[in-house]
Amino acid sequence: MTIRYRALFHLTETGKTGAILQTARNLLADMGDGVEVEVVAHGDGVKAFLLTGQYVDDVRNMSEQGVRFAVCANSIRAMTFARDDFPRSVEVVPSGISEIVRRQAESYAYIRL
């Protein structure tokens, strides 16, 4: 199936991680291969994707379904985390906000819960 839709989830609070992941799962269930999904975390949101976090299995499983996860390098540096603190399936981007701007310019629907 051809990608017809793109969705970008913006995560800034770890407390909203479960809701964002469930909403992304619902979107994938409804639209299947017709949607491309990315979750971008910065600020406190990067903590949700730590290897020691409660969502590590969700991130792995959703990555296998094609969901892209990205964390902000500025945020992880400010919080004194390192690349090795995150699963390999999570990409570190130079700036979370810049990633969001780029994706919106590429016609991704912006979603923030």
Score class of each variant (00 low, 15 high):
residue 60 R to F: 07
residue 105 A to D: 15
residue 59 V to M: 07
residue 75 S to K: 07
residue 94 P to I: 01
residue 83 R to M: 08
residue 38 E to A: 06
residue 16 K to F: 00
residue 2 T to L: 09
residue 60 R to Y: 12
residue 16 K to E: 12
residue 111 I to N: 00
residue 11 L to T: 08
residue 83 R to T: 10
residue 56 V to K: 10
residue 105 A to N: 14
residue 78 A to D: 10
residue 96 G to Y: 07
residue 99 E to K: 06
residue 23 T to D: 13
residue 86 F to G: 05
residue 75 S to W: 06
residue 24 A to Y: 05
residue 76 I to C: 04
residue 68 R to A: 09
residue 61 N to E: 12
residue 72 C to S: 08
residue 34 G to P: 04
residue 4 R to T: 12
residue 42 H to M: 10
residue 39 V to S: 10
residue 105 A to M: 13
residue 86 F to K: 04
residue 29 A to S: 14
residue 9 F to H: 08
residue 108 Y to K: 04
residue 99 E to Y: 03
residue 53 G to Y: 05
residue 105 A to E: 13
residue 66 G to Y: 03
residue 32 G to C: 02
residue 46 V to H: 01
residue 97 I to R: 11
residue 74 N to S: 02
residue 15 G to F: 01
residue 103 R to T: 03
residue 58 D to K: 09
residue 36 E to I: 01
residue 90 V to C: 05
residue 26 N to L: 08
residue 90 V to D: 03
residue 43 G to Q: 11
residue 92 V to W: 02
residue 87 P to F: 09
residue 73 A to D: 13
residue 61 N to K: 12
residue 63 S to L: 02
residue 39 V to G: 00
residue 32 G to R: 07
residue 5 Y to V: 01
residue 72 C to Y: 14
residue 63 S to T: 09
residue 84 D to I: 02
residue 10 H to N: 14
residue 98 S to D: 14
residue 55 Y to F: 15
residue 87 P to V: 06
residue 109 A to K: 06
residue 64 E to C: 06
residue 109 A to P: 07
residue 67 V to C: 13
residue 101 V to R: 06
residue 57 D to T: 01
residue 52 T to H: 13
residue 63 S to C: 02
residue 14 T to D: 13
residue 46 V to N: 01
residue 9 F to Y: 15
residue 83 R to Y: 08
residue 88 R to I: 02
residue 81 F to Y: 14
residue 15 G to K: 11
residue 16 K to I: 03
residue 56 V to A: 14
residue 51 L to P: 02
residue 101 V to S: 11
residue 7 A to G: 09
residue 99 E to F: 02
residue 54 Q to E: 15
residue 74 N to Q: 12
residue 91 E to V: 10
residue 42 H to T: 06
residue 101 V to P: 05
residue 37 V to P: 06
residue 111 I to M: 07
residue 73 A to K: 14
residue 89 S to K: 11
residue 69 F to Y: 05
residue 33 D to P: 08
residue 10 H to I: 00
residue 113 L to F: 15
residue 23 T to K: 11
residue 80 T to H: 15
residue 56 V to G: 09
residue 46 V to F: 02
residue 96 G to V: 00
residue 93 V to L: 09
residue 12 T to F: 04
residue 17 T to C: 08
residue 53 G to V: 02
residue 1 M to T: 09
residue 63 S to H: 14
residue 66 G to H: 04
residue 73 A to P: 00
residue 29 A to F: 08
residue 26 N to R: 14
residue 90 V to T: 06
residue 100 I to N: 10
residue 7 A to P: 06
residue 24 A to F: 07
residue 64 E to P: 10
residue 15 G to V: 01
residue 29 A to N: 14
residue 79 M to P: 02
residue 27 L to Q: 11
residue 14 T to Q: 11
residue 6 R to D: 03
residue 84 D to S: 15
residue 30 D to G: 05
residue 32 G to Q: 03
residue 2 T to A: 10
residue 44 D to N: 15
residue 8 L to C: 07
residue 37 V to M: 03
residue 101 V to H: 04
residue 54 Q to C: 04
residue 79 M to I: 06
residue 58 D to G: 03
residue 41 A to F: 09
residue 113 L to G: 14
